[in-house]
């Protein structure tokens, strides 16, 4: 897979380290994992330090996770966002999906 993920648990908070890239090919899988995690945790932090690229299909997965979290009044946060991913988030206006920490 073009994507590797490591999960660290801090009680009700989950931290997901994302390594690689998300494109149309693996976005479905990423979506499934994120869905699973939004059900598991009160708040979810995505560590994007090693996330190189997110395509629009990947953004859809993020949006989906955001919607789920919002519905259960949870928090979706992002940290260590790299320049290229940040650019995409800014261009598309999806910066509002995340609480940046």
């Amino acid at each position: 897979m073009s994507m590797k993920m490591n999960l660290i648990k801090h009680g009700t908070e989950g931290e997901l380290q994302m390594i690689g890239y998300i494109d149309a090919g693996n976005a479905g899988e990423v979506d499934k994992i994120l869905m699973d995690l939004t059900h598991q945790f009160e708040s979810l932090v995505l560590d994007m330090e090693k996330l190189e690229y997110v395509s629009s299909a990947g953004l859809r997965a993020f949006r989906h996770a955001y919607m789920e979290m919002r519905q259960k009044h949870g928090v979706l946060a992002a940290k260590n966002v790299g320049r290229s991913v940040m650019e995409v988030l800014e261009i598309t206006g999806f910066t509002r999906l995340f609480k940046f920490i």
Binding site: L59, R63, T92, G93, F94, R96
Partner: peptide, 12 residues
């Protein structure tokens, strides 16, 4: 300045 994508948020 950009707005959000179409279909992203109702209140954009």
């Amino acid at each position: 300045k950009h707005g959000c994508v179409i279909g992203g948020f109702e209140d954009s």
